[in-house]
Write a protein that binds this DNA or RNA. Structure first.
Lengths: 285, 285
DNA sequence: CATCTTTATGAAATTTTCTTACAAATTTGC
DNA sequence: GCAAATTTGTAAGAAAATTTCATAAAGATG
């Protein structure tokens, strides 16, 4: 499991801190970048606590002392993951909402990165490699993800297709059988049409893979489920980030397949890349 | 343009440093990680120079002093490790390549987050709000992005469509005119078909927006360009992350449009959300 | 090659920053 | 309501960093 980001660790621990430690935490979380460049005295003053309290705070988070803590904080900031709960609000202008949306996406990715089951990724790669045919199915926003997956997996010389048409999906599911892989992408895992099609595929002996929410009907039907838990979209203004997480997971799967294929396969990928060259204007410089 | 890594800067400057500064540089380059956690005294001793020499060295590299220098060095190390040493290599297993792919995506997002021009985002939001019609065009992987954009902007009650068919694109571009917005998505900005269609759109008086690489043919044609610079995909195994960056930028634009529409518009979004409810299995719990 | 000028360097003092020890205050358990 | 445990701050002192200034080295000039 990936080491959690210091900032998130602090945020997580927040409720368990005592009064002065929590004051320190709040000041740091409010502007971590500033914290890295202030002295212990300045930070103590900003938090309204004594210097030793700040020092104790640092030690609580496994730092040798304040300077060491600052160093760790600085590193945590670079890794790009910032503090979570920054919702877009109606008063925001471009320079507020733009980073907020990036940050929220980044945070969700970091969360899934730390939680995704590697053994399940491996199982799915197995299934994909052994597949006689692969179908990527999704509706609405997940349709775009499915389409992207087709574009990606097509390069592996696998018989792959994507469908965002429910009737098409239904027909294909009912004509499939052993060796066929039906890969369902769904944010909620509760869309009736999707679940029904998955049931049909399953009934015909095909392998059903779900890239979806845990504890959903789709998850329970799937032969293997890649569980993605992205916080519900409570804020009206926040975009749905699950699509993006799904895309990255498909990137991971594609990489898994490439690696499993071994180095002999690279020339094939190169060939596909080159086939596009003639469609482009040459880069000067 | 990517800011040069501090370590590389030091290495580059090496020949121009004087005797004691160069000693300091060598010690730091030999073990930069150690340098971040040693005191000025320790480093001075290791380099066989005086403490002020180390201090002067730090100031030479635009640091406020030694502690500030250590901070910058620490940051450089983190980003260095991620960019240089985090490529997927053929020996990787699931638990290595999975976080690597997430990290590389996260890094690219963080980079664009810090570099994207807010004023251009604003300009694009303006154009989208005023548009009589919006067309999202993309080919290949960018086609999926365009499709996702349609799905997203459709909710704004704007006449929007997406096309990944070159002939369709061509026809629409030539029938468009003032008030129409053609939004082109392209990783390279050099695909001939895309550039040609953009030229046609432009010639007919439509607004052309490019979500693409800077200094590309597409960028130079566009009325407004959202420049996205994602490091070239040199590693055979690394997936292309520009798609994901593009999606997030479209999320930003959509948020901008929602905010500009004001709170009166929220019921409309709510209505669309609700329209999907009946298609889902209810969540128990 | 002597002398002046510039530049580089370090010793020591000063200042800033951090840590520790301990006592006061607060909370908790009984 | 009192003792123990925990939390917090004061103040001292230790450590680290910076500045000042003197000296040494290198370079320029006649």
């Amino acid at each position: 499991m990936h080491t959690q980001n210091l900032i998130n660790i602090i945020a997580d621990q927040l409720p368990e801190l005592n009064k002065s430690e929590s004051k320190v935490a709040q000041v740091i979380l409010a502007d971590p970048d500033r914290a890295t460049s202030s002295s212990i005295a300045a930070l103590a003053k900003a938090a309204g606590v004594s210097e030793p309290s700040v020092n104790r705070f640092c030690k609580r988070f496994n730092a040798a002392g304040f300077p060491d803590f600052k160093l760790k904080l600085a590193k945590a900031l670079v890794s790009g993951v910032r503090f979570v709960n920054r919702n877009v609000d109606p008063e925001d202008d471009v320079s507020s909402y733009t980073p907020k949306i990036f940050d929220s996406t980044i945070n969700n990715l970091a969360m899934v990165r730390d939680r995704i089951s590697h053994s399940i990724v491996n199982q799915v790669v197995d299934k994909l490699i052994q597949a006689k045919r692969i179908y990527f199915f999704g509706l609405g926003a997940s349709g775009s993800v499915a389409r992207d997956a087709e574009n990606k997996f097509f390069r592996f010389n696998l018989p792959v297709s994507f469908h965002d048409d429910v009737l098409m999906q239904r027909m294909l599911a009912s004509t499939g059988g052993t060796g066929d892989v039906f890969f369902f992408i769904s944010h909620t895992g509760r869309t009736k049409e999707v679940v029904e099609v998955a049931e049909i595929a399953k009934a015909n002996g095909s392998t059903v893979i779900g890239l979806t929410a845990p504890d959903s009907p789709l998850a329970s039907i799937s032969s293997v489920t890649l569980e993605v838990e992205v916080p519900e979209n409570t804020d009206e203004y926040m975009p749905m980030t699950s699509r993006i997480v799904h895309l990255v997971i498909l990137d991971v799967l594609a990489t898994g397949v490439t690696l499993r294929r071994g180095p002999d396969f690279l020339p094939h990928l190169e060939k596909i890349k080159n086939s596009l060259k003639s469609t482009r204007y040459i880069k000067d410089s």
